[in-house]
Design a protein around this nucleic acid. Structure first.
Length: 333
DNA sequence: AAGCGTCCCAACCGCAGGTTG
DNA sequence: GCAACCTGCGGTTGGGACGCT
């Protein structure tokens, strides 16, 4: 568990602690108290840096550390405190005797945050995230309906693709309070793929999102994709738009498309997400998530790969919960 | 049984703030 | 006032454990 043993420039040992090191540290601190962490390693006969000793003592060796699973009461307390304090793990730990900030942080990241997400709450604000539902439905189709179709009729890939596109374009959310946009599909005209399904042309599709959402649909793998991503296809849906007529004649090779949603607070984009569909092969048909650039998320199941999605309004460097929202949500699963 | 992907968590890193000389 | 040092915090890493195919 943990980091592999390694040596720093000055020869100080790093990585997991062994029993002998633990004993030296415990013996020294029980005799002399924690004191100065910088000089402690030398005095205790440890080939570690003071920082490492401090961390080991505070997070593992301290006699008042409580071991074992978190109780339901502790979970509730963490949730309550996190709603008030945010990621102030040390402040939260002060209210939970025997628990360390590191332990609480780990427990939050591996259990409680995901649980909140599954329940439809934003783990940072602890507020319901109703504005995500339209995108979740689109993505649910991708993970369930599409795969089912492929499994049942693997040979008729084009039919599956068309059906999938149709589902996306027909998706509605009558239950949500903000039914704000409608999107026509002239963009898809001319696609060899779509020509085989005439009724799809000019079809109106409704997407339900927050009243200040944006949406764009654009072809990938196209020479002018880059130019398009800046404008004019990034559309502010407030309250109702259709694709600009100029896009009617845009070539679409039928191999890929991207759905992108931006969420705004006032004029500020606080979150932008995209899903891309690659129609080149059936196996690539599950959408991949992309950030504001064209960098696909290589391993969307691993939350650590989601760092390319920036969560606005928080501290810099904070990883976005959005990928988890999609892949952990009960609708998806 | 083997291979693979994901989960979990101990430990590391960088940084900010406080203290000391 | 300033630099060096020390401590504490929050974010991130990475490998063993585990589960699934």
């Amino acid at each position: 568990m943990g980091r592999p043993p390694s040596s720093a420039k000055d020869g100080v040992k790093k990585g997991p602690w062994d029993a002998e090191e633990d004993k030296k540290l415990v013996d020294f601190i029980s005799k002399h108290g924690p004191g100065c962490w910088i000089s402690l390693p030398k005095l205790a006969g440890l080939n570690r840096c003071g920082k490492s000793c401090r961390l080991r003592w505070i997070n593992y060796l301290r006699p008042d550390i409580k071991r074992g699973n978190f109780t339901a009461e502790e979970e509730q307390q963490i949730l309550r405190l996190h709603a008030i304090l945010g990621n102030k793990w040390s402040a939260i730990a002060m209210q939970l005797p025997g628990r360390t900030d590191n332990e609480i942080k780990n427990y939050w990241n591996t259990h409680l945050k995901k649980r909140l997400i599954r329940m439809g709450y934003d783990p940072m604000t602890h507020e319901p995230r109703t504005d995500l539902m339209a995108c979740l439905r689109v993505l649910a189709m991708s993970n369930n309906g599409l795969n089912d179709l492929l499994n049942h009729n693997p040979l008729d890939v084009n039919a599956v693709k068309l059906d999938y596109l149709k589902q996306i374009l027909q998706s509605t959310d009558a239950g949500a309070p903000n039914l704000v946009s409608s999107i026509s599909t002239p963009l898809l005209k001319g696609s060899p793929l779509l020509n085989s399904l005439p009724q799809l042309e000019n079809q109106q599709a409704s997407f339900s999102m927050g009243a200040t959402s944006s949406l764009h649909l654009q072809p990938l793998h196209h020479p002018i994709t880059t130019a398009l991503s800046a404008s004019p296809m990034d559309l502010q849906i407030d309250p109702q738009v259709t694709f600009p007529p100029s896009l009617d004649s845009m070539p679409f090779d039928g191999t890929a498309a991207r759905l992108s949603c931006g969420f705004f607070q006032g004029d500020n984009l606080v979150e932008n997400i995209s899903a891309a569909w690659d129609f080149e092969s059936a196996s690539d048909f599950v959408p991949s998530f992309i950030s504001d650039a064209d960098t696909p998320v290589s391993n969307p199941g691993d939350v650590r790969s989601s760092s390319s999605l920036h969560c606005g309004g928080g501290a810099s460097g904070r990883s976005s919960p959005w990928t988890e929202i999609f892949f952990d949500h009960s609708i998806i699963q």
